[in-house]
Amino acid sequence: MFSNLGQSFFRAQQASGFEDYFRCYPVSMMPSSSSREVANFGGKIFLPPSTLHKLTMLHISYPMLFELTNQETGRSTHSGVLEFLAEEGRCYLPQWMMSTLGIQTGGLLKIKNCDLPLGSFVKIEPQSVDFLEISDPKAVLENVLRNFTTLTVDDIVEVSYNNKVFGIKVLEVKPESSSHGICVIETDLETDFAPPVGYVEPDYKKEKKQSQVNPAATNPGLVGQGSMAKKINYSELLKEKPNTTKFQGSGVKLSGKTIKNEEVAAQDTSGLSLEGQPAPLILPDNQLFFGYPLKPYKGDNRTDKNTNQNPLFAGQGQTLRKSKKRKDKSTQSTSAKDKTRSPDAIIIDSD
């Protein structure tokens, strides 16, 4: 009889599912944990070890999904569980989740298990224009969703990227359900982005009108070849004869010689034309053009005829040593070797 009562009680508890109340605290107040920083920018919570025992007895299937409800404000959201290591009677939530529920630190929170459909589509809205600075937002969102188990409409989740925190609001999810939430584990999720809050659409019609303005009015150098020369009538200015009264002085070459007046002549520009495309300057190999004809240097090849007649040095040299008196070469002196000259033959007496 008692066994039948126990089985009926267990079936009734299994049919009702898991439901309990906890005092909630932010993840930042949690004792030291290696996953604390990751959990603060995710969608999972921490529950006590006794909760795992109850869920195991109720045969709750994986993934374990929960509905969090603040009965004072009537707000609710969904989450998964990261670890069962919280103190008994407590649960730890990310800061964005506590803001969404509108619950204070140490407030009473109702948690029960639930089932959510696998999501196929989500539309999000960044809460700051700074989100546009991210080069690949879809790749960033894909990496962020690894820390989430569920997504609920009207939730404003927080993600951390490049030492910045961005707020993202969930606008729409598919498939739609009465719980307004989806499960994002082991599913192909299509993502759509709404314009960020505070974003102003540029006026494309005004930009189009500005682009249709004749560029020659503002920049004549953009139309044709030599348009600036046409504007100042440069070809007519070159045809004018130079006014010799402007400069009455005389020129000097780099060598120091003065220039004669006959050498200064007017530039002939009759054949100069600035119309059309300029002709290409094609030079042979190993030749450069500096804007003027090359005049080879004429070296001074004159030979000095008086070089042999007038030697460069005709004096006498002197040494720093004192001169010694030399003996007269005419006097003949016998050397010491002659005095000790050896005999021509040596006779030995045998007797």
Rank of each mutant, 00 (worst) to 15 (best):
N261L: 12
E158D: 05
S250M: 10
V252W: 12
E72C: 08
R326T: 08
E72M: 11
L141N: 00
I232L: 14
I259L: 15
C24A: 12
K230R: 14
L312D: 11
L272C: 07
P293K: 13
G74M: 05
G17H: 08
S255T: 15
K206F: 05
S177W: 13
T307D: 10
Q212G: 04
K54C: 07
S79N: 03
L254A: 15
N40Y: 05
F10Y: 14
N4C: 07
I259Y: 14
R90G: 02
I282C: 12
P220L: 11
G17R: 10
T69M: 06
P94A: 05
E19S: 14
N306H: 06
L52C: 06
D154P: 04
R11D: 15
T269P: 00
F18G: 04
E133R: 08
I103R: 00
T100C: 04
G299D: 15
S227D: 04
A314M: 14
V223H: 07
T105M: 14
Y62K: 09
C183W: 02
D130Y: 03
P31R: 10
L118K: 15
S99E: 11
D328Y: 03
R75H: 08
E262A: 11
R11E: 15
N219V: 07
D188C: 06
V159F: 00
A139T: 05
Y199R: 06
Y199L: 09
G221N: 06
K239N: 12
D304F: 09
N308P: 01
Y292H: 14
D351K: 12
M64D: 07
C24F: 03
L65C: 09
N306I: 06
A216I: 08
P215E: 01
V153K: 09
H53V: 13
N147R: 05
D203M: 06
P280L: 06
E88A: 02
L55S: 04
E275M: 00
E67P: 03
D188R: 08
V173K: 03
G6E: 09
G119C: 09
Y292I: 14
P215K: 04
F166A: 01
K209F: 06
R302K: 15
P126E: 00
S32C: 11
Y161A: 02
E142I: 12
K337P: 01
V140D: 00
T149Y: 03
F121N: 10
S323M: 09
K322N: 13
N113D: 12
L254C: 15
M30G: 05
D351Y: 13
A229Y: 02
I259T: 11
A345H: 04
L109W: 04
K110S: 11
K339I: 10
V157R: 01
I111S: 00
Y199Q: 05
L151S: 00
V184F: 01
D351Q: 14
V157K: 00
D349K: 13
K138F: 11
Q332I: 10
L58E: 02
G249C: 07
V38D: 06
P137S: 04
I134D: 02
N233H: 13
L274Q: 02
